[in-house]
C-alpha cells in the first residue's frame, strides 16, 4: 500500500475503562483516530471491540477515561447527540427498520437534515415537499453508489443478509457523517460480497473523505484496508500501529493471530 498522509487527530480515546457489574470489558484503552484514515479495531470474540464503538457514540458510558472529539472533551453524552456531531455507525447485528423499504430506511438516515415542521409535513406542500424531493435526490445518489437500485422499494426485512448490510451502510452514509463506525460490515458474507463491501469502504473514504473506524475479523481485509490498527484482547490493548507493525508484534501473534487461524 502506498504511503498515505494522515490528517489531524479527530478522535482521542484516553484511558477508557468500562465495566458491566464485576465484568471489565475495556481496561484503560487509549488510541486516536486521524482525519481521513481507516482505523481498524481487531481482537478475538468478546475482546470489547463493539463495546468500544458503543463508547465512542455514546451508547455506553465508561467509568473512567475521556473521549475528545474535534477538540472537545465530551461530558456524559446522550445517544442521539453522536449523530448531531457527525458520527454514524452500522451494527454487527443489523439494526435496520424492518418494516420500512430500503428507500425509507436511507431517507430516515437524513432525519437531522430535514427542517420542515410537522404542520408543513401534514400539508405536504411547499417546503415539506421540496425537502422530500431534494433529500430523495441525495438518497438516490447513495442508492446508485451502493448499487442497490433494484431493491429500493422492498421492505428490508425481506432482503437477504448481504443486502441488508448494504442498506444499513446506506442509512449511515445518508447522514453524510464525518466519522463512520463500521462494526463487522463484512461478517457472514461470501467472497464476492466482501469484495464489494471493501470497495465501498475504500470509496467512501476516498471520495467523501470520511474517517472510518472499522471492526473486522478477516485479517486479509484489515491488513489491506487499514492505515492503522488497534488490537484488543479481553479488554486489554495489546498493540497499536500500522498493519505491518501489528502483524509482527509478538503479543498479537500469541494472543490473537496464533489462536484464531
Amino acid at each position: 500500500m502506498y504511503e498515505r498522509k494522515l490528517g489531524d487527530v479527530v478522535l482521542q480515546v484516553d484511558g477508557i475503562s468500562l465495566s458491566f457489574g464485576a465484568m471489565r470489558v475495556l481496561n484503560n484503552i487509549s488510541f486516536n483516530v486521524r482525519q481521513g484514515e481507516i482505523r481498524s479495531i481487531i481482537g478475538p470474540n468478546g475482546a470489547g471491540k463493539s463495546s468500544m464503538l458503543n463508547v465512542i457514540n455514546g451508547v455506553y458510558h465508561p467509568q473512567q477515561g475521556a473521549i475528545t472529539y474535534r477538540g472537545k472533551t465530551r461530558d456524559l453524552m446522550k445517544v442521539h447527540e453522536a449523530a448531531q456531531q457527525g458520527i454514524a455507525r452500522t451494527f454487527q447485528n443489523i439494526a435496520l427498520f424492518k418494516g420500512m423499504s430500503t428507500l425509507d430506511n436511507i431517507m430516515t438516515g437524513r432525519n437531522l437534515k430535514i427542517k420542515s415542521n410537522m404542520l408543513q409535513q401534514a400539508i405536504y406542500w411547499g417546503k415539506a415537499q421540496r425537502e422530500e424531493i431534494e433529500h430523495r435526490r441525495k438518497v438516490e445518489e447513495i442508492i446508485d453508489f451502493l448499487e442497490i437500485q433494484a431493491i429500493r422499494k422492498i421492505p428490508v426485512g425481506k432482503l437477504p443478509y448481504g443486502m441488508q448490510k448494504r442498506v444499513e451502510l446506506g442509512r449511515a452514509l445518508a447522514a453524510e457523517p464525518d466519522l463512520l463506525l463500521l462494526d463487522e460490515p463484512m461478517a457472514g458474507m461470501n467472497v464476492e460480497e466482501k469484495e464489494d463491501m471493501c470497495r465501498f469502504v475504500l470509496d467512501i473514504n476516498d471520495e467523501f473523505g470520511t474517517t472510518i473506524v472499522l471492526i473486522e475479523h478477516d485479517m486479509g481485509v484489515v491488513m489491506d484496508l487499514s492505515d492503522r490498527v488497534v488490537v484488543l484482547d479481553y479488554g486489554l490493548q495489546l498493540a497499536d500501529g500500522p498493519p505491518d507493525e501489528v502483524r509482527r508484534n509478538q503479543a498479537v501473534i500469541d494472543a490473537y493471530l496464533g489462536v484464531s487461524n
Binding site: 445517544v79 453522536a82 439494526a95 435496520l96 420500512m100 430516515t108 438516515g109 432525519n111 409535513q121
Partner: peptide
C-alpha cells in the same frame, strides 16, 4: 414525510433510531 419515518423507526428499532 420525515415524522412518519421517525415514528416507524422508533417502532421498528428504537436504539438504532436514536443512534441516527
Amino acid at each position: 414525510s420525515n415524522i412518519g419515518r421517525e415514528w416507524m423507526a422508533v417502532r421498528d428499532m428504537d436504539i438504532a433510531a436514536e443512534i441516527i
